Structures are given as C-alpha cells and as structure tokens.
Amino acid sequence: MIEEEKLAMGNALLLLKHMGYCKALKGVWSDDFKYSLLKARFEEMIAKEDEKKEEKDEKLIADLGECNLFFGSSSSLELNSICVPCLLKVALNKEENEEAQKEVEMALLALSCIFSHYNIERDLYLNEMKEIIQYHEKHHNLTRLAYQSAWWFLIILSFNDQKTIEVIVDELHFEREAARELDELMQSVDWKKKEEEEVKEKGKNEELVFKRWLQMFEHFFITCRKWNEECPGLIESIVRVLQAAKDYRREICKTCIYLLRSSAENRAVKVDALLKSGAIDAVLEEIQQPTLDEEMTFECKKFFQLISVCLKIKEIDEKEEAKKKVIKMEIFDKLEEEGYEDIIISIQKNISCIFKDDDVFIYL
C-alpha cells in the first residue's frame, strides 16, 4: 500500500507505532515482521538517513526504530546504535503536555523491547537514562508506563555490565524506587476479581504496568549480583503483593513465589533479608493453600533448598558464621511450628540441587 501510494509513509508509521505500542504493552510477540520486506525497507531507510552529513531527519529514524523494536525484530547492533540515541532524544523531552508525554512514553516503551543480547555501548545511553529517571523523581513528568519502561531498558542492558549495575543500585536506588512504585500500583488492582474476569477500564493500564514491574524483577534478580541495604524493602513489597493476591489472583501469586525463589537464588541477597522481609513466612503460608499445584509446590521446595545452600556455604568471618547459625535455627523453628518436619529432613539430606557461584557448582 505504501509503494502504491495508497497510504502515506507518515500515516503508515503512525499506524504501525500505535499497533506496536498495544502489542508491546500486552506482551504479545511475533516473528512475522522480522522476515518481512517492510522491515528490510525500514532498516534501509534508517541506514540511508544516518549517512546524511547534513539535515539528518532524526524523528524519522526514531519512528522507524520504534516500529522495528515494537514488533519484536530487534535490529542489528549497528542499526540499534543509530536508533537508540534518536529515541533517547525523544525521551528527554521534558514538556508536560499530553502529546509530548505520549511520545516520551512510546519511545521508552520501544527501548524496553531491545533484547539483552545486544550489548549497546554504555556511552550511548547511560547518562541520558540517568537524567530521565532522576528528573522524573524530582518533577514526576513521566507516565507510570514510561517510568517502568525506562528502568526495564536499563536492566536489560545491564546484563554482564558491572558499571551499569552499580549505577542502577547505588546511584539510582532501583530497589527503593521499585518498592515504592509497586506499593502505589497495588492500590489500582481490584484484588477480589479473578484473572478471567474483565478488569475495570479505569484500572486496566495500571494493572498492566503493575504486572510489567513484576516481570522486570525476574531480570533484576538474575542480572544484579550486588547487595544493597534497600533490597529487603523490595522483597517486602513482593511479599505484600503475594499476600494480597493469594485468594483470587493465583497467576500473580505464582509470579511472586517465583520471584522470591529467584531472590533466594541470587547470592547477593542475604538469608536474613529473606527472613526479616517475611518471605519465608509467606512461602510457608503458600504451602498450606488447598489449591497448590505441582508448579507452585516445586517453587516452594526450591526456595527452601536454595536457603539451605546459602546456610551451608562456609564463611571466613566468624561473626557472620555465628549470625548464620542463629538464622538457621530461626528458620527451622518456623518449619517445626508449622509441622513441616519432612521439609527439614529433605533440606538436610542430599538433594539434587545445584547452585552456581562464580562458575563453581555447589551440591547439597
């Protein structure tokens, strides 16, 4: 249709951007666009526009880049290196009118669709993303979706990048901000409605953003191996979501249990943080649910296996070792109070549980 001039390029891009926006927001992925002639044409247009020495149309590059990213066909590293700076310029727009905010939201959502295996040069995005996040925390100029997408983009690209991880944890205080945002978004969820029931229109977008935060935590626990004192606060927020979801929202509940298991698997997360945050109590409560299925049973068992691994790893520091013994006794006392002697026995025996630590595998 574009070739036959039945649809102007500008209108075609606008249509594709809005289609891609809805697609990305709902987490629908497809490879159809990846092998299309339209994708090839868009990438050719991006490269051709970038070659211009003067009057380069950065808005066109940004629009084309958004379409490529929204439809799950992450371009080559070279093309992403062209598109990312243009999309960041859109995202840096600090105007507070509705149209500007929508463009910023769309640009950041598109950036959050970049695949983690594209190791884009840190210099192309880190300072700009810091500015976007820090400015929002002072002036609240971003939509909730835009703010979440900014974090997701950073965390995706922090894989195996210690410098970016340090910025996320130490400078931008991800755990603190994520916990605050999650607690606020919890107020938008109708916890008495089951998954299959239609969500009220006024809370629909908020609930989608809420679920995106939960999905992002999985990436965070896998990527970030740096301890921060704010981490227990994030785990407490996940526990609060689990407690709110356990009666009606079993899919959200399942996600939370998986996240608690992932946090236990992360060696940077200390066992006493899991104890003080209420994570251990929450998993014990979940075990008692009459609707516990095979997958949830596995996740709960894995959670305790991972805690057992952490408690068995030898520490050089005697104070830390003494503290660990106290924690171990407290955890086992909780298990005994609930009548889970079989769990204690299974934890103490040789279970085929593997825990990776700096490429060294530790077996129980």
Rank of each mutant, 00 (worst) to 15 (best):
M9G: 10
G10V: 11
G10F: 06
N11W: 12
N11F: 09
L14K: 13
L15Y: 11
L16E: 06
L16P: 05
L16Q: 07
M19A: 13
C22S: 14
C22D: 13
K23Y: 11
L25D: 04
L25Y: 05
K26M: 12
K26P: 03
G27L: 09
S30H: 10
D32H: 08
D32I: 12
K34V: 03
Y35P: 02
Y35T: 09
S36G: 10
S36R: 08
F42C: 09
E44A: 12
M45T: 13
I46F: 06
K48F: 13
K48I: 08
D50Y: 05
E51I: 08
E54P: 00
D57I: 01
D57S: 03
E58W: 09
E58S: 08
E58K: 14
K59F: 09
I61D: 00
I61N: 01
A62F: 05
E66K: 13
C67R: 05
C67K: 01
L69V: 06
F70P: 03
F71D: 01
G72M: 06
S74P: 08
S74G: 13
S74T: 14
S76T: 15
L77W: 07
E78Y: 10
E78S: 09
E78W: 09
N80A: 04
S81L: 05
V84K: 00
V84H: 01
P85D: 01
L87Q: 00
L87A: 00
A91M: 02
L92M: 08
N93S: 05
N93T: 05
N93R: 04
E95Q: 11
E96K: 06
E96A: 02
N97C: 10
Q101T: 04
A107F: 05
L108T: 00
L108C: 03
A110H: 06
A110S: 13
L111V: 00
S112W: 00
S112I: 03
C113A: 13
I114P: 03
F115V: 11
F115K: 15
H117Y: 15
Y118Q: 11
D123F: 08
L124Q: 07
L124G: 05
N127P: 06
E128V: 03
E128K: 03
M129A: 06
K130P: 08
K130V: 12
E131L: 06
E137H: 10
H139P: 07
H139K: 14
H140N: 14
N141I: 10
L142M: 02
R144S: 14
R144C: 14
A146S: 11
Y147A: 01
Y147M: 01
Q148S: 12
